[in-house]
Design a protein around this nucleic acid. Structure first.
Length: 593
RNA sequence: GCCCCAGUAGCUCAAUGGACAGAGCAGUAGCCUUCUAAGCUAUUGGUUGUGGGUUCGAAUCCCGCCUGGGGCGCCA
């Protein structure tokens, strides 16, 4: 936010160092001063000192220790640059140069910017880059559980963040409405549930029947023949089967619509894999003709020996099976034409796949095959956004086949009930309608937050107790800070005052809060660059904590004169910043709780 | 067998190669005539799995090992 000042100082220091004969550098690395209550920018001279020491040693001189040298340089720089305008103090300590902002001037600038930009504060300039993101990818005829939730929540946040950073984002879903799991479901339905219809909770019912199908097949493996026969009829587009598929598939799709509406998630385009089945089968024939795929039918499937084609000695990408020996399609059959279709339809600069880590090898195979098919440029633009799975306590895998699932429906209902209980107790003056709405928003935030607040490489273990714990490092804590800010502004009863010309000392909690607010634009860029929503959950939490500190220490409405006006403006800015981060994470910022 | 990931406080997790490794939960002791206590304050808690290496500096990068998880020809 203070790039101009930073660049100027950076420039001055480089020039000075060059004049002094220190090893040349084009740029210094700047970061925030890491001590709470201190606000400014910081750089260090260890690298220059280390290089200088090496130079001296080469000339046969005996250099002092690097840390000492770094401190010497820091001192020299400090004396040379004096106190640049806008700063109140410059320290040289432990080899670091710390420049402390003139807090009144900078705080004013931060707050003015936030209030002026409102819900676009933190957003970056247009980058002219188009990013397509595929996420959610639910299976029809199956359950929707907390494992799927991580994908949806991460995908949604990722899209929000990429967009805020200045990219054009295309949100896509890829619904798996064909495949063995569908055939199993249809088989079970025709044989044991013919004519039945789902109740209110469609997704649960679909999931139950799927688990049941698997159980029956496990108990009587000889029935697999019937399933295979049914798959053959499907593949021939038998009208009876198609009609049943259309009807039952619709139940799942309606269930998904309910879930996405509940979670507040939208898509720009939805791909269905039934659209890709025929193109995929045709594509496989083409691959065989081109000599890329090897047809082992009918004894074996159609495969691509990727390592052989790439001339790799060591097994790396191994073998990709692209078509079953009976000619029916697999995931890969459809993923290849889908990859192409994405580029043909949208020509994205980046094609992101939000899919769990277990499919890493598979996706690399798809990308490599895409390159081998003559699209190396597209292959390079594909990116697997990988994340670890959600487990149940005791390292139990969530498996819809085995029915060891925590359904999203159940989780949301439990969390809402819990939140409703809390809001009734904490804020009895609200109307029933308001209470229900608060409970909904708080419950959803609480559910989404843990999915975003740990690194993608970490397994999330779902347990009911911590999922329903609304205290501490959790979304409700952040939402509550927003509510408190809102509460002050509501009590104010008039519009936020103009910035007074006269300002006075800031309280340390104010400095800390302003510092964190000022970080939002950079953190959005960093989160987008590294594709880590985690950076923003961290910032959201720190913002909330800083606000609660401020709230405890600094009276606002009871303050007087310019202090009151300034604090009111800070409260409004903090509220805006918290709301902006929460929105990026897909979490609502309520006005009351 | 080959490959990927994780290992940080009792538990769940943070930490652009940088200053004293930080939060929450749990525990203990306090704070509601004061803008909502879903909050705040204080306090306890660490050989960052382990052995080397690189570096001025390593939880972070490299190599070995240990433990756990995952992936590897017709599941998705």
């Amino acid at each position: 936010m203070f790039l101009k000042e930073q660049e100027q100082i950076n420039q001055n220091i480089i020039e000075f160092l060059n004049k002094q004969g220190y090893p040349g550098r084009e740029d210094l690395e700047w970061s925030a001063i890491p001590f709470s209550g201190d606000w400014g920018i910081s750089t260090s001279f260890f690298k220059i000192a280390a290089q200088h020491a090496r130079d001296l040693r080469q000339k046969g001189e005996q250099p002092p220790p690097v840390s000492e040298l770094a401190q010497t340089i820091a001192d020299q720089v400090r004396q040379n640059i004096g106190i640049p305008s806008g700063f109140k103090r410059v320290d040289a300590v432990h080899g670091y140069l710390n420049l402390f902002y003139e807090p009144l001037e900078f705080s004013r600038r931060v707050i003015d910017t936030v209030l002026e930009q409102g819900n676009r504060f933190g957003w970056g300039h247009k980058k002219g880059k188009r990013i397509l993101v595929e996420f959610s990818q639910p299976n029809t005829h199956k359950a929707f559980h907390v494992g799927h939730l991580r994908n949806v929540v991460l995908g949604d946040a990722l899209c929000n963040i990429l967009e805020a950073a200045g990219n054009e984002v295309i949100r896509t879903n890829y619904i798996n409405d064909t495949g063995l799991h569908v055939i199993k479901w249809l088989w079970n339905y025709r044989k044991f549930h013919d004519g039945e219809e789902p109740g209110e909770d469609k997704t649960r019912w679909m999931g139950d029947l799927y688990a049941e199908a698997n159980k029956r097949l496990e108990e009587n493996p000889e029935l697999e023949n019937e399933v295979r026969a049914l798959y053959a009829r499907w593949d021939r587009r038998d009208p009876d089967i198609m009609a049943l598929w259309e009807r039952t598939r619709q139940w799942s799709l309606e269930g998904f619509d309910q879930i996405y509406a509940l979670l507040g998630i939208r898509f720009d385009h939805i791909f269905y894999d039934h659209e890709l089945e025929k193109p995929g089968q045709d594509l496989v024939e083409e691959l065989i003709r081109k000599g890329i795929a090897i047809d082992e039918r009918p004894q074996g499937p159609v495969i691509i020996r990727i390592d052989d084609l790439l001339g790799l000695k060591k097994e790396t990408y191994r073998v990709l099976v692209v078509l079953r020996s009976d000619g029916t399609s697999l995931y890969a059959t459809k993923d290849l034409p889908l990859a192409i279709k994405k580029f043909e339809m949208f020509n994205p600069d980046l094609s992101v796949y939000v899919i769990d880590v277990r499919q890493s090898l598979y996706l690399q195979q798809i990308y490599k095959t895409l390159a081998l098919m003559g699209h190396p440029d597209w292959a390079e633009r594909c990116f697997h956004f990988s994340y670890e799975i959600v487990n149940l306590p005791g390292n139990v895998t969530i498996a819809s086949r085995e029915g060891t699932v925590v359904l999203l429906e159940d989780l949301v209902r439990e969390a809402q009930q819990r939140a409703l209980g809390v809001v009734k107790e904490k804020n009895p003056s609200l109307s029933v309608q308001e209470m229900i709405e608060v409970a909904r928003v708080v419950a959803l935030g609480a559910i989404k937050y843990p999915m975003l607040a740990r690194d993608n490489t970490k397994v999330v273990t779902f347990d009911w107790q911590s999922a329903l714990d609304f205290n501490g490092q959790a979304a409700p804590y952040i939402q509550y800070a927003h509510v408190r800010a809102n509460s002050i502004l509501r009590k104010l009863g008039e519009s936020i005052p103009e910035a007074p010309s006269f300002q006075s000392e800031l309280h340390p909690t104010e400095v800390q809060l302003i510092e964190l607010i000022a970080r939002l634009p950079n953190e959005i860029q960093r989160a987008a660059q590294e594709m880590k929503p985690l950076h923003l959950t961290n910032l959201a939490y720190e913002l909330a904590r800083a606000f609660n500190d401020f709230y405890a220490e600094c009276p606002v409405l009871k303050a007087e004169g310019p202090i009151r006006a300034n604090r009111l403006r800070l409260v409004a800015a903090a509220q805006q910043a918290i709301a902006n981060v929460l929105n990026l994470l897909g979490i609502s910022a309520p006005e009351v709780m």
